[in-house]
Protein backbone atom coordinates (compact mmCIF):
# COMPACT_ATOMS: atom_id res chain seq x y z
CA UNK A 1 0.00 0.00 0.00
CA UNK A 2 1.31 3.50 -0.63
CA UNK A 3 0.80 6.62 -2.62
CA UNK A 4 2.84 5.25 -5.49
CA UNK A 5 2.60 6.31 -9.10
CA UNK A 6 1.09 4.17 -11.80
CA UNK A 7 1.91 0.55 -11.29
CA UNK A 8 2.36 -0.74 -14.80
CA UNK A 9 2.96 -4.28 -13.60
CA UNK A 10 -0.52 -4.35 -12.24
CA UNK A 11 -2.08 -3.74 -15.64
CA UNK A 12 -4.29 -6.77 -16.19
CA UNK A 13 -2.81 -9.53 -18.24
CA UNK A 14 -4.30 -10.48 -21.57
CA UNK A 15 -5.76 -13.53 -19.83
CA UNK A 16 -8.93 -11.77 -18.79
CA UNK A 17 -11.58 -11.44 -21.42
CA UNK A 18 -13.77 -8.94 -19.68
CA UNK A 19 -12.45 -6.29 -17.35
CA UNK A 20 -15.08 -4.97 -15.02
CA UNK A 21 -14.61 -1.94 -12.81
CA UNK A 22 -17.10 -1.46 -10.00
CA UNK A 23 -17.05 1.91 -8.24
CA UNK A 24 -18.48 2.73 -4.87
CA UNK A 25 -18.86 5.44 -2.29
CA UNK A 26 -19.15 5.03 1.46
CA UNK A 27 -21.94 7.32 2.59
CA UNK A 28 -23.13 8.32 6.05
CA UNK A 29 -25.89 6.09 7.34
CA UNK A 30 -28.59 8.72 7.30
CA UNK A 31 -31.05 6.32 8.85
CA UNK A 32 -28.92 6.30 11.98
CA UNK A 33 -29.48 10.02 12.40
CA UNK A 34 -32.40 11.24 14.39
CA UNK A 35 -34.40 14.09 12.90
CA UNK A 36 -33.01 16.28 15.69
CA UNK A 37 -29.48 15.41 14.64
CA UNK A 38 -29.96 16.88 11.19
CA UNK A 39 -28.17 19.86 12.60
CA UNK A 40 -26.44 22.08 10.15
CA UNK A 41 -22.74 21.44 10.17
CA UNK A 42 -20.38 24.34 10.21
CA UNK A 43 -19.44 23.74 6.58
CA UNK A 44 -23.05 23.62 5.45
CA UNK A 45 -25.14 20.53 5.03
CA UNK A 46 -25.95 17.89 7.58
CA UNK A 47 -23.48 17.00 10.31
CA UNK A 48 -22.67 13.38 9.51
CA UNK A 49 -19.24 13.08 11.06
CA UNK A 50 -20.48 11.06 13.98
CA UNK A 51 -22.52 8.55 12.02
CA UNK A 52 -21.12 5.29 10.76
CA UNK A 53 -20.50 4.84 7.07
CA UNK A 54 -22.38 2.36 4.91
CA UNK A 55 -21.96 1.37 1.30
CA UNK A 56 -24.14 3.53 -0.86
CA UNK A 57 -27.02 1.14 -1.51
CA UNK A 58 -26.93 1.41 -5.31
CA UNK A 59 -23.18 0.85 -5.34
CA UNK A 60 -23.70 -2.17 -3.12
CA UNK A 61 -25.98 -3.63 -5.80
CA UNK A 62 -23.35 -2.81 -8.42
CA UNK A 63 -20.61 -4.57 -6.45
CA UNK A 64 -22.70 -7.72 -6.00
CA UNK A 65 -23.92 -7.68 -9.62
CA UNK A 66 -20.27 -7.57 -10.73
CA UNK A 67 -19.48 -10.63 -8.60
CA UNK A 68 -22.43 -12.50 -10.03
CA UNK A 69 -21.44 -11.42 -13.52
CA UNK A 70 -17.97 -12.90 -13.04
CA UNK A 71 -19.42 -16.16 -11.76
CA UNK A 72 -21.80 -16.48 -14.70
CA UNK A 73 -18.99 -15.54 -17.06
CA UNK A 74 -16.78 -18.29 -15.61
CA UNK A 75 -19.52 -20.83 -16.21
CA UNK A 76 -19.62 -19.69 -19.84
CA UNK A 77 -15.88 -19.93 -20.30
CA UNK A 78 -15.24 -16.20 -20.08
CA UNK A 79 -12.80 -14.87 -17.53
CA UNK A 80 -14.00 -11.65 -15.96
CA UNK A 81 -11.54 -9.67 -13.91
CA UNK A 82 -13.04 -7.51 -11.20
CA UNK A 83 -11.63 -4.27 -9.93
CA UNK A 84 -13.08 -2.01 -7.26
CA UNK A 85 -12.46 1.71 -7.01
CA UNK A 86 -13.51 4.32 -4.53
CA UNK A 87 -12.68 7.97 -4.41
CA UNK A 88 -12.37 8.07 -0.66
CA UNK A 89 -10.29 8.40 2.48
CA UNK A 90 -9.01 5.72 4.77
CA UNK A 91 -12.51 4.92 5.89
CA UNK A 92 -13.20 3.08 2.62
CA UNK A 93 -10.37 0.63 3.24
CA UNK A 94 -12.49 -1.84 5.25
CA UNK A 95 -14.79 -2.08 2.23
CA UNK A 96 -11.88 -2.58 -0.13
CA UNK A 97 -10.52 -5.36 2.09
CA UNK A 98 -13.93 -7.01 2.07
CA UNK A 99 -14.03 -6.83 -1.72
CA UNK A 100 -10.57 -8.36 -2.01
CA UNK A 101 -11.69 -11.18 0.30
CA UNK A 102 -14.68 -11.71 -1.99
CA UNK A 103 -12.46 -12.16 -5.03
CA UNK A 104 -12.01 -8.66 -6.45
CA UNK A 105 -8.56 -8.79 -7.95
CA UNK A 106 -7.77 -5.10 -7.63
CA UNK A 107 -8.95 -2.77 -4.94
CA UNK A 108 -8.00 0.86 -5.25
CA UNK A 109 -8.80 4.09 -3.57
CA UNK A 110 -7.99 7.57 -4.71
CA UNK A 111 -7.87 10.02 -1.81
CA UNK A 112 -10.23 12.90 -2.40
CA UNK A 113 -7.57 15.55 -1.82
CA UNK A 114 -4.58 16.52 -3.84
CA UNK A 115 -1.51 14.46 -2.89
CA UNK A 116 -0.20 15.32 0.53
CA UNK A 117 -3.38 17.08 1.53
CA UNK A 118 -5.33 13.97 2.34
CA UNK A 119 -7.27 14.28 5.52
CA UNK A 120 -6.34 11.05 7.25
CA UNK A 121 -8.88 11.55 10.01
CA UNK A 122 -11.04 8.47 9.89
CA UNK A 123 -14.64 9.40 9.43
CA UNK A 124 -13.77 12.86 8.17
CA UNK A 125 -15.68 14.40 5.32
CA UNK A 126 -14.32 13.35 1.97
CA UNK A 127 -13.94 16.86 0.63
CA UNK A 128 -15.44 15.77 -2.68
CA UNK A 129 -18.94 15.18 -1.48
CA UNK A 130 -20.34 17.49 -4.09
CA UNK A 131 -17.84 17.49 -6.88
CA UNK A 132 -19.27 15.08 -9.43
CA UNK A 133 -17.00 16.36 -12.18
CA UNK A 134 -13.83 15.61 -10.23
CA UNK A 135 -15.04 12.19 -9.10
CA UNK A 136 -16.06 11.27 -12.64
CA UNK A 137 -12.70 12.40 -14.06
CA UNK A 138 -10.88 10.21 -11.55
CA UNK A 139 -13.04 7.19 -12.33
CA UNK A 140 -12.76 7.64 -16.07
CA UNK A 141 -8.99 8.15 -15.94
CA UNK A 142 -8.56 5.09 -13.76
CA UNK A 143 -10.78 2.95 -16.00
CA UNK A 144 -8.89 4.02 -19.07
CA UNK A 145 -5.32 4.32 -17.93
CA UNK A 146 -4.96 1.81 -15.12
CA UNK A 147 -7.65 -0.84 -15.23
CA UNK A 148 -8.23 -0.82 -19.02
CA UNK A 149 -11.85 -1.57 -18.23
CA UNK A 150 -14.42 -2.90 -20.66
CA UNK A 151 -17.27 -2.15 -18.34
CA UNK A 152 -17.84 0.31 -15.51
CA UNK A 153 -20.65 -0.48 -13.05
CA UNK A 154 -21.72 1.93 -10.32
CA UNK A 155 -24.81 3.13 -8.52
CA UNK A 156 -26.96 5.63 -10.36
CA UNK A 157 -26.78 8.02 -7.44
CA UNK A 158 -25.62 8.13 -3.84
CA UNK A 159 -27.49 9.99 -1.18
CA UNK A 160 -29.22 13.15 -0.09
CA UNK A 161 -27.74 16.17 -1.82
CA UNK A 162 -25.86 14.33 -4.56
CA UNK A 163 -25.93 15.39 -8.19
CA UNK A 164 -26.83 12.04 -9.73
CA UNK A 165 -24.55 12.82 -12.66
CA UNK A 166 -21.38 10.83 -11.98
CA UNK A 167 -22.24 7.83 -14.23
CA UNK A 168 -23.11 10.14 -17.14
CA UNK A 169 -19.96 12.16 -16.73
CA UNK A 170 -17.84 8.99 -16.56
CA UNK A 171 -19.47 7.78 -19.78
CA UNK A 172 -18.93 11.13 -21.43
CA UNK A 173 -15.27 11.22 -20.45
CA UNK A 174 -14.76 7.70 -21.77
CA UNK A 175 -16.86 8.29 -24.86
CA UNK A 176 -19.02 5.29 -23.95
CA UNK A 177 -22.78 4.91 -23.74
CA UNK A 178 -24.40 4.94 -20.32
CA UNK A 179 -27.34 2.75 -19.42
CA UNK A 180 -29.34 3.89 -16.42
CA UNK A 181 -31.64 2.17 -13.94
CA UNK A 182 -29.86 -1.11 -14.56
CA UNK A 183 -31.28 -4.01 -12.56
CA UNK A 184 -29.49 -7.10 -13.94
CA UNK A 185 -26.36 -7.86 -15.95
CA UNK A 186 -25.49 -11.11 -17.61
CA UNK A 187 -22.44 -11.84 -19.74
CA UNK A 188 -23.25 -13.70 -22.96
CA UNK A 189 -19.71 -13.82 -24.33
CA UNK A 190 -16.49 -11.88 -23.87
CA UNK A 191 -17.93 -8.88 -25.66
CA UNK A 192 -21.66 -9.23 -25.32
CA UNK A 193 -23.78 -8.47 -22.31
CA UNK A 194 -27.45 -8.75 -21.61
CA UNK A 195 -28.61 -5.92 -19.39
CA UNK A 196 -32.01 -5.40 -17.81
CA UNK A 197 -33.00 -1.87 -17.01
CA UNK A 198 -36.05 0.21 -16.33
CA UNK A 199 -37.04 2.76 -18.96
CA UNK A 200 -39.88 5.28 -18.79
CA UNK A 201 -42.39 2.81 -20.15
CA UNK A 202 -41.32 -0.20 -18.16
CA UNK A 203 -38.56 -2.79 -17.82
CA UNK A 204 -36.55 -3.80 -20.85
CA UNK A 205 -33.70 -6.10 -21.68
CA UNK A 206 -30.91 -5.07 -24.02
CA UNK A 207 -28.07 -7.00 -25.55
CA UNK A 208 -24.95 -4.88 -25.83
CA UNK A 209 -21.64 -5.20 -27.57
CA UNK A 210 -18.67 -3.05 -26.64
CA UNK A 211 -17.70 -1.07 -23.57
CA UNK A 212 -20.25 0.86 -21.57
CA UNK A 213 -21.12 2.38 -18.23
CA UNK A 214 -23.93 0.75 -16.29
CA UNK A 215 -25.66 2.89 -13.68
CA UNK A 216 -27.40 0.51 -11.32
CA UNK A 217 -30.83 1.50 -10.03
CA UNK A 218 -33.34 -0.39 -7.92
CA UNK A 219 -31.94 -3.85 -8.56
CA UNK A 220 -33.49 -6.82 -6.81
CA UNK A 221 -29.97 -7.70 -5.75
CA UNK A 222 -29.34 -5.08 -3.10
CA UNK A 223 -26.89 -6.72 -0.71
CA UNK A 224 -23.27 -7.60 -1.06
CA UNK A 225 -22.37 -11.13 0.02
CA UNK A 226 -20.14 -11.51 3.07
CA UNK A 227 -16.67 -13.09 3.03
CA UNK A 228 -15.76 -15.67 5.65
CA UNK A 229 -12.98 -15.03 8.16
CA UNK A 230 -11.01 -17.70 6.28
CA UNK A 231 -11.43 -15.81 2.97
CA UNK A 232 -10.20 -12.69 4.70
CA UNK A 233 -7.22 -14.50 6.16
CA UNK A 234 -6.31 -16.10 2.84
CA UNK A 235 -6.29 -12.75 1.01
CA UNK A 236 -5.11 -10.50 3.81
CA UNK A 237 -1.77 -9.78 2.16
CA UNK A 238 -3.24 -8.52 -1.09
CA UNK A 239 -2.49 -4.82 -1.20
CA UNK A 240 -5.03 -2.06 -1.26
CA UNK A 241 -3.73 0.28 -3.92
CA UNK A 242 -3.72 4.00 -3.11
CA UNK A 243 -3.34 6.23 -6.16
CA UNK A 244 -3.10 9.99 -6.13
CA UNK A 245 -5.46 11.79 -8.45
CA UNK A 246 -2.44 13.58 -9.91
CA UNK A 247 -1.03 10.22 -11.01
CA UNK A 248 -4.17 9.79 -13.05
CA UNK A 249 -3.71 13.18 -14.60
CA UNK A 250 -6.48 14.77 -12.58
CA UNK A 251 -5.78 18.06 -10.88
CA UNK A 252 -8.32 18.08 -8.09
CA UNK A 253 -7.75 21.65 -7.03
CA UNK A 254 -8.08 23.06 -10.52
CA UNK A 255 -11.15 21.02 -11.37
CA UNK A 256 -12.75 21.70 -8.03
CA UNK A 257 -12.41 25.36 -8.81
CA UNK A 258 -14.50 24.92 -11.92
CA UNK A 259 -17.34 23.25 -10.03
CA UNK A 260 -19.05 26.35 -8.86
CA UNK A 261 -22.31 24.92 -7.58
CA UNK A 262 -22.12 23.81 -3.98
CA UNK A 263 -25.06 22.87 -1.78
CA UNK A 264 -25.02 24.91 1.40
CA UNK A 265 -28.01 23.50 3.21
CA UNK A 266 -30.49 20.63 3.22
CA UNK A 267 -34.02 20.52 4.40
CA UNK A 268 -36.51 17.72 4.11
CA UNK A 269 -39.90 18.72 2.72
CA UNK A 270 -42.67 17.48 4.95
CA UNK A 271 -45.04 15.53 2.76
CA UNK A 272 -46.49 13.42 5.52
CA UNK A 273 -50.23 12.98 5.30
CA UNK A 274 -52.61 12.94 8.15
CA UNK A 275 -53.79 9.46 9.10
CA UNK A 276 -56.91 8.36 10.88
CA UNK A 277 -56.95 5.20 12.95
CA UNK A 278 -60.26 3.43 12.50
CA UNK A 279 -61.46 1.87 15.72
CA UNK A 280 -63.65 -1.21 15.80
CA UNK A 281 -64.23 -4.50 17.56
CA UNK A 282 -63.36 -6.70 14.58
CA UNK A 283 -61.80 -6.38 11.12
CA UNK A 284 -65.34 -6.56 9.78
CA UNK A 285 -66.47 -3.58 11.90
CA UNK A 286 -63.44 -1.59 10.83
CA UNK A 287 -63.99 -2.37 7.15
CA UNK A 288 -67.63 -1.33 7.52
CA UNK A 289 -66.66 1.98 9.15
CA UNK A 290 -64.09 2.60 6.43
CA UNK A 291 -66.70 1.90 3.77
CA UNK A 292 -69.41 4.02 5.41
CA UNK A 293 -67.22 6.98 6.24
CA UNK A 294 -64.90 7.19 3.25
CA UNK A 295 -65.62 4.82 0.42
CA UNK A 296 -69.36 4.81 -0.10
CA UNK A 297 -69.52 8.36 -1.48
CA UNK A 298 -66.59 7.80 -3.80
CA UNK A 299 -68.08 4.56 -5.11
CA UNK A 300 -71.41 6.25 -5.69
CA UNK A 301 -69.88 9.04 -7.73
CA UNK A 302 -68.08 6.44 -9.80
Amino acid sequence: MGMGGLNTEAIPSQMSDLRVLACFKATPDFEALREADWATAAAGGVETRYVRRVLNCFDESALELALRLSETAARRGVRAELGALSVGGRDVEPYLKTLVALGYERATRVPPEAAGGESEVAGGESGLDFAPGVVASIIAAYAQRVAHSDLVVLGWRSGPGDSGTVPFRVAEALGWPCLTQVTEVEPLSDDRLRVACVADDGPLRLTLRGPCVLAVGNAVVSHLRVPTLKDRLARRHRPIEVLAAADLGVDIAAQRHRETCLPTGFETIDRSRRGVVIEGQSPHDKAQTLFDSRLRDIMETL
Binding site: E31, L33, Y50, V51, V221, H223, L224
Partner: peptide, 26 residues
Protein backbone atom coordinates in the same frame (compact mmCIF):
# COMPACT_ATOMS: atom_id res chain seq x y z
CA UNK B 1 -24.12 9.60 21.75
CA UNK B 2 -25.09 9.46 18.05
CA UNK B 3 -24.61 5.70 18.00
CA UNK B 4 -26.55 5.22 21.20
CA UNK B 5 -29.55 7.10 19.90
CA UNK B 6 -30.01 4.54 17.15
CA UNK B 7 -29.58 1.33 19.09
CA UNK B 8 -33.13 0.02 19.34
CA UNK B 9 -34.63 -2.32 16.79
CA UNK B 10 -38.14 -1.65 15.52
CA UNK B 11 -40.02 -3.55 12.82
CA UNK B 12 -38.23 -1.57 10.06
CA UNK B 13 -34.77 -2.80 11.06
CA UNK B 14 -36.02 -6.34 11.63
CA UNK B 15 -37.58 -6.46 8.14
CA UNK B 16 -34.45 -5.00 6.54
CA UNK B 17 -32.30 -7.59 8.31
CA UNK B 18 -34.57 -10.43 7.11
CA UNK B 19 -34.16 -9.19 3.54
CA UNK B 20 -30.38 -9.03 3.95
CA UNK B 21 -30.38 -12.64 5.15
CA UNK B 22 -32.66 -13.72 2.31
CA UNK B 23 -30.23 -12.33 -0.25
CA UNK B 24 -26.88 -13.16 1.31
CA UNK B 25 -27.68 -16.24 3.41
CA UNK B 26 -25.45 -14.55 5.96
Amino acid sequence: ETWFNDLCWGPDKITAEDERIRQTRN
